[in-house]
């Protein structure tokens, strides 16, 4: 790996976030501290309401923490958003139905002012990356759910952000499609050396994908365990039957259970 591998890209220190609701304030994040290095694949796992999505949205500058310190590429999260430091993949593909697949991938490029030729070149490259080269002229609603989600990943990759933030991107897909996309995502990560933040509530998915697994628990949303994965970077699907894999999965499950016993 490149020598920059140890550079810290995302750093959170004692992050706090309280939402004011009509009933009572909701403590979505409490005292969350975490460092993410360049090239890390970090999964956030935990039950609903544990703040994993909120934390990702804080990193993206879509929510503003009420306390603590958060830097992305050495800037505040909001500055990083304006500097277009990351690509974001949502739970649903969220492609515009009035644009073709190519048109959807061009959307961020148009907003960021890339030249026409550059746009076309990039669209072709990322379509190839997610194996959708033959579908550029199709409309989203003509594609399957899995293909739509791949297109939305391509959209997030189209501009050169080295951070990819993904909020349960495969949550709505069936198991078989999901396995396939997980494999593809790992291959893509290996090729691009991006830093990936990945929210999921599937233990096998988190263990299979990540170099670092962040276990979170609710009320208040907090980190209960951070597990560095000893698995090699090269991961065939059947690694999921190996003892190391099962070990980590076990530890994640323990962490989740410990978080719940506080209820």
């Amino acid at each position: 790996m490149a020598p920059t591998a140890t550079k810290t890209v995302i750093s959170a220190e004692a992050l706090d976030l309280t939402f004011q609701t009509p009933d009572a304030p909701v403590h979505a994040l409490k005292d969350v501290s975490l460092n993410i290095q360049q090239g890390d694949f970090v999964s956030f796992i935990g039950p609903s309401g544990c703040g994993k999505t909120t934390f990702l949205r804080c990193i993206a500058g879509l929510e503003t923490p009420t306390g603590g310190k958060l830097t992305v590429n050495g800037m505040t999260a909001d500055e990083a958003r304006r500097a277009r430091a990351y690509g974001y993949v949502f739970q649903a593909a969220g492609l515009y139905p009035w644009r073709t697949i190519s048109g959807n991938i061009k959307l961020p490029l148009e907003i960021m002012g890339y030249s026409k030729s550059d746009q076309n070149e990039r669209v072709a490259r990322v379509l190839d990356l997610v194996e959708l080269s033959d579908f550029g002229a199709k409309f989203p609603w003509q594609l399957s759910g899995g293909m739509q989600q791949r297109a939305s990943i391509a959209r997030a990759l189209a501009f050169d952000a080295d951070i990819l933030l993904m909020d349960e991107p495969f949550g709505a897909l069936d198991e078989i499609v999901r396995d396939h996309l997980n494999e593809q995502l790992l291959a893509l990560w290996a090729r691009t050396n991006k830093t990936i933040g990945f929210v999921t509530h599937s233990i096998p998915e988190a263990v299979y994908l990540s170099t670092k697994i962040v276990v979170m628990s609710p009320r208040p949303g907090r980190i209960t365990d951070v597990i560095e994965s000893p698995l090699p970077k090269e991961r065939p699907l059947d690694i999921r039957d190996s003892p190391e894999f099962i070990d980590i999965a076990h530890r994640v499950r323990e962490g989740l259970r410990a978080g719940h016993s506080n209820d």
Binding site: L62, R81, R84, G87, F90, G94
Partner: peptide
């Protein structure tokens, strides 16, 4: 959709 636009600044 609005969040997506915000992530693009």
């Amino acid at each position: 959709q609005r969040d997506l636009m915000r992530t693009y600044g």
